[in-house]
Amino acid sequence: MIIRRPFRLTSLSVALLLVGCGGSDSSSPGDTTSSTAVISGTVPGTFIEAFFADGSYYSTNSIDNGEAEHPFSLTIPSSVNFHLVMTTNKGTADQIITPIRITSGGVTSALINTSVTFNLGYIPLAMNLADIIDANGDGVVDSPLIITPDLPEGAQVVEVTLDALDSDNDGIPNIYEDDDNDGEFNLEDLDDDNDGINDVDESDDDDSDDDGVDDQYDSDQDNDGVNDNSPVTTYTPVSAYTPKVGRLLASQCFQCHGTNGNSTNDWDSIAGESVSEIVEEMQEFKSGEEDEPIMAAQAHGYSDAEISALAEWLATQSSSEGED
């Protein structure tokens, strides 16, 4: 549950600073690393929420520094798609909830991801209910606010076909929709379908925090801002696809030797061995000098050039356990 604290806000500007750790090292695709970024900026008193595609949830309040623009700081996962929602006048009768959309490179989307620091620039959130269009009077602007910041390499706006967090793709996250039109957001509504049975008692409700991500796949099932998985590991995705010589051939070793050559048991890991080690071993299997019938059969399946290519690629992989 989100902690609700009253705020009286007057004006707003926001700078979003994301500091990535771990980053997007495209030379090691498939790495699993713990990586976070930090959002910071200035606002006069706004509640800032970030909803992530893996179900995780991060929020912060701006800090009153006595000036018009109040700083805030928020640590978020690197390279995971997220929605931003900003709430002014929080907890008052004038509360305004503004989902954010970003236009960059000709694409407008409410989904963003980043592995780097960037500045969103000023975000002109409405402060008065009279300034927004809210036909259904639910306190959420009917159309997300579009901003056009300069996104550096490593941060991007993404347009997807299936956004679990925003099922109708209107830019307003599911939790701030009111599916049964009873005047309560799904997030706050104990009975989302108004059938008289509370959601927690319904066997078919497998999304207990109403964020659109099934509990089974939700990294933060209660939306308390604490990742339920400990330690937190996130996949560090590559930002662009590049075919690499030897990779597809090498991937045919992974069935037995583990993803990216990192075995999960006492069979050999082959990640991180030198090119010459791998080539030498494969030639010994081929010649029968080393008596391993399955590896002999496999080694016969690859030409010398293919063995070199897959060895070159495997040598670039980090060994997670440091086995031979």
């Binding site: 960059s104 490179g105 000709g106 694409v107 989307s109 002109p124 606010l145 579009i146």
Partner: peptide, 19 residues
């Protein structure tokens, strides 16, 4: 929004968007 965005848009490095 557009007014303030313009300042930031003066030095775009890459197209940071993907469909």
């Amino acid at each position: 929004a557009m007014g303030f965005g313009t300042v930031a848009l003066l030095t775009p490095k890459i197209i940071s968007a993907a469909t």
